[in-house]
Amino acid sequence: MPEIFVDLGSVNAPSGVLVLGMAGGIDQWPALGRSLSARARDAASSGGGHLREWLCEAVAVPAAADRPLRVRASTSPSPFDEEPTVATLEIALGLPWPETADLPAPVRLGDLPVDRCGMVIGDAVGLDAWTGLEGEPADGLADVTYWGRYEDDAHAQFGGERIAQHGVDGPYGWLDLPLAEATARAAELTAWRDRLHGKGLMVSIEEHTDFHRFHRAGWGHPLRVGAIEVGSCQVLGIEWDQGDHSMRHNGERAAGQVYPVTLEADEAGEMLMRWTIPPYSFGAED
């Protein structure tokens, strides 16, 4: 049966180099010696390749600089809850397949694990501006959420709105607060919990780093996909359900949980990058 693809949106790559990388380490590349864009440019100059240092991994390829690049995915059911999850990720690169290459034969660029923190697709130079977990929010804002056994009691005391997320009610909280106000509200909730209950309420404050913004952008999407702007470029992020990750991808590269990335030609003779995650076999014994 042929794969059925759904559109996830588009990205742009004005530098002419596109990256598919692990979101948890995008901002760590410079600390490891060279920027992501410098490494990616070298890989793309030879037709594309795999980048890996310490816990950071990505694949970089040449791409058209003058147009949006479509991103699609096919899905397979998760072994965790049987909801659809990404099986094949396909990115149109907008460039003709090299005349000297064998058209039907995919070119293997390497393999990538599914990062528990999510995956990012975007322009190599744009991603140099990425702010990770320890970064500073450019807008000075943050989101505060709370949930758990005593969430209704906390809501009666402090208020807040249900924050919609796909398939679930979502936590209570407040979005887009000035950082000082967000910090004060989180402290009030925590002090109230500790004074009355000790535990039973989770409180989170998330500053508007790019890492948080891409997760937030995917809250309403069935595949947890969201688009944000980073370094004046449109970037797509894909988050994985933590239950699905634990059952399918846990351990990542250290456990051999890696999946091939290839360069292929589409029906029109243009280049595609594909990342293929085999469907889980529900009949297989653990």
Rank of each mutant, 00 (worst) to 15 (best):
I205N: 10
T145H: 09
W130R: 06
G122D: 08
D152L: 13
A129W: 00
A186P: 00
L196H: 14
W147F: 12
K199E: 12
A180N: 06
D176G: 12
H155P: 06
A191Y: 00
V168S: 14
G160M: 04
L141D: 03
L133A: 15
D111G: 13
D128K: 02
W174C: 04
Q157V: 11
D176N: 15
I163Y: 04
T131S: 15
R193V: 05
D194A: 08
E134W: 14
V168R: 15
E188Y: 03
T190A: 07
A182R: 06
D139E: 02
E151Q: 15
R162D: 00
P98V: 03
Y150C: 04
L189D: 01
T183D: 11
D102N: 11
D102L: 12
M119K: 07
V120R: 02
A124M: 05
Y150Q: 07
W130T: 00
V114R: 06
A186M: 09
G132W: 00
D143Y: 07
D143W: 04
I121S: 00
A138G: 14
F158P: 01
S204Y: 07
P171W: 05
R185H: 11
W192E: 01
E134S: 13
D128F: 00
L133N: 12
V168Q: 14
H166V: 04
T145G: 09
Y146I: 02
Y172N: 08
Y172K: 07
P137V: 02
P104D: 09
Y146K: 10
R193N: 09
G170E: 03
A105N: 10
G148Y: 04
E136T: 14
W192V: 01
R149H: 11
D153H: 14
G140R: 06
A191Q: 10
L103R: 15
E134P: 02
E134M: 12
K199P: 01
A184N: 05
Y146L: 03
K199Y: 09
A180C: 04
Y150E: 05
L201W: 08
R108N: 10
D153E: 15
T190M: 08
G126S: 00
G118T: 09
D176H: 14
A124Y: 02
E207N: 10
A182I: 06
E207P: 12
E161C: 13
A124F: 00
Y146S: 00
L175P: 00
Y150T: 13
F158R: 02
A156N: 15
G148M: 01
A124D: 10
A184I: 01
M119D: 08
A129N: 07
C117M: 08
E136K: 13
V107R: 14
R195A: 15
M202H: 12
E99M: 10
D139H: 00
G159I: 08
T131W: 04
